[in-house]
Design a protein around this nucleic acid. Structure first.
Length: 420
RNA sequence: GCGGGCGUCGCCAAGUGGUUAAGGCAGCGGCUUGUGGCGCCGCUAUUCGGGGGUUCGAAUCCCCUCGCUCGCCCCA
């Protein structure tokens, strides 16, 4: 029979790995709580239309990377490739923005049909933040700060922040025209991918990794040159406030984000310790999206962190997180003992102790061997004799004494009397 | 979708044409019928991702295929 395996690009997380994930999740939860950012959870599955309209038909994500299928009602459904569109949809639908501004965060799996490689799976996980209804550039700065501080709180080193301004819609259209005109005059020097993008998504050409193209782009007109006074002023405010906070950053005029909805501030946080996929956080302002998805005009900014990439960074660190070891390991042999051991283990757990119960019915010495390996401090030995008397033998596995007369033993006997 | 590397037991791994596919870890059983850590003994791949082919003979050579992995594209 053929072996069953996970789908390509999907990953099983084994017990030793889930510890790192739990740490990230709990750190993030606490971090957001301190900034009064509330959690939102939306479905993994949405109408295809949402992403097509929200993210943009011309993007790679929508064009070739979505998990899309027809359901039994003949509706086109898509496994969410990112979180922002869903959060905006949910906020509009539930009247969240109509009431007041919102600070939201989410975490969970996203799906993109791509070739897997280091730091990129088909099912991957993001922690994201969305500020809805905040217009002032200070909200950009707070959003960025929350990303930066979260990553630092997790103990990551070698991070760098890059920011850029894409301007408002008018700026972008204006620049788009300037750029396309300029690139047309150098069309022969462009790689084929970039030539295609001239039609579909010219701004994406800016962060092409093709060497000759990127060389050419050094001479191209920059986005900054096309910014209006207001947009420029806005961008300066972001820069100044980041400086005030002492958060180091660099302006990267070639930074363009892959999704259509961004305007004004765009940013990425990269790590120097990852492979080719070095961006661990990406985000920006998306003032037009809410309206585009049917809500009232609402300014917004957000970001997303790639959890797999975080995990890669945290797993290479020196101090590994380890599983909690049992305090008690219950060894039992014999029919009455087996029955009684269930009671003893339960009783200890009800009193907040960590207890591993041996369920194998193996020989005493085998069970003790396992007790030793489990890392438990105490072994509780139960045979039929003990079970009949309602007693147990407590053994300290660190010393070699058979029984010990300290507090643990006393506590145990008191508890036993109560439950027997 | 396109390139490079790799695929031998649950894990790590030797073996690169010749009768039985090393070894280590883990697991199981025993020495020790109710007392661990150490030690010793034994057991655990009719089979080398799958399918064809070459050969007297293949894990080892060839072809195809699948999977993993790294990179391109793109993105978190």
């Amino acid at each position: 029979m053929e072996k069953l395996k996970v789908l390509r690009g999907m990953v099983d997380l084994m017990p030793e790995q889930t510890l790192v994930w739990q740490k990230i999740e709990s750190t993030a939860r606490k971090h957001f709580k301190r900034a009064v950012v509330n959690e939102i959870r939306t479905p993994l599955l949405e109408a295809t239309e949402l992403f097509a309209r929200g993210i943009g038909e011309a993007t790679d994500v929508v064009g070739k990377e979505m998990y899309t299928f027809m359901d039994k009602g003949n509706r086109s459904c898509t496994l969410r490739p990112e979180g922002t569109a869903s959060v905006v949809r949910a906020s509009i639908q539930n009247g969240l923005i109509a009431q007041r501004s919102q600070r939201l965060w989410y975490s969970g799996p996203m799906f993109r049909y791509e070739r897997p490689q280091a730091g990129r799976q088909r099912q991957f996980h993001q922690i994201g933040l969305e500020f809805l209804g905040f217009e002032h550039p200070r909200s950009d700065v707070e959003a960025i700060t929350l990303a930066w501080d979260l990553l630092n709180e997790l103990g990551l080193k070698g991070l760098s922040l890059e920011i850029n301004s894409l301007g408002d819609t008018t700026d972008r259209l204006c620049y788009r025209k300037i750029l396309v005109d300029w690139l047309r005059s150098h069309q022969e020097e462009l790689d084929t991918d970039s030539q295609n993008r001239l039609e579909t998504n010219p701004l994406r050409i800016l962060d092409s990794k093709n060497p000759t193209t990127s060389e050419l782009l050094k001479r191209a007109p920059t986005l900054n040159d096309a910014l209006s006074i207001e947009s420029l002023k806005r961008f300066r405010t972001v820069e100044n406030e980041l400086n005030n906070l002492g958060i180091p950053f660099e302006v990267n005029p070639l930074l363009v984000r892959g999704l259509d909805y961004y305007n004004h501030t765009a940013f990425e946080i990269k790590s120097d310790q990852l492979g080719a996929q070095s961006t661990i956080c990406g985000g920006g302002r998306y003032d037009g999206l809410v309206e585009q998805l049917g809500g009232s005009s609402t300014p917004a900014i957000g970001w997303a962190i790639g959890m797999e990439r975080l995990v890669m960074l945290l797993s290479t660190k020196q101090d590994p997180i380890t599983h909690s070891k049992p305090q008690f390991y219950v060894v039992n042999k014999g029919d009455k003992a087996e029955s009684f051991s269930l009671i003893v283990a339960r009783m200890l757990r009800l009193n907040k102790h960590i207890v591993e119960l041996d369920l194998t019915r193996a020989a005493f010495n085998k069970q003790l061997k396992r007790a030793d390996r489990s890392g438990a401090r105490w072994a509780i030995l139960i045979g039929d004799n003990e079970a009949i008397e309602g007693e147990v033998i407590l053994k300290d596995l660190r010393s070699s004494s058979k029984e010990s007369s300290n507090d643990e033993r006393t506590t145990l006997q008191i508890l036993l009397k109560r439950f027997h």
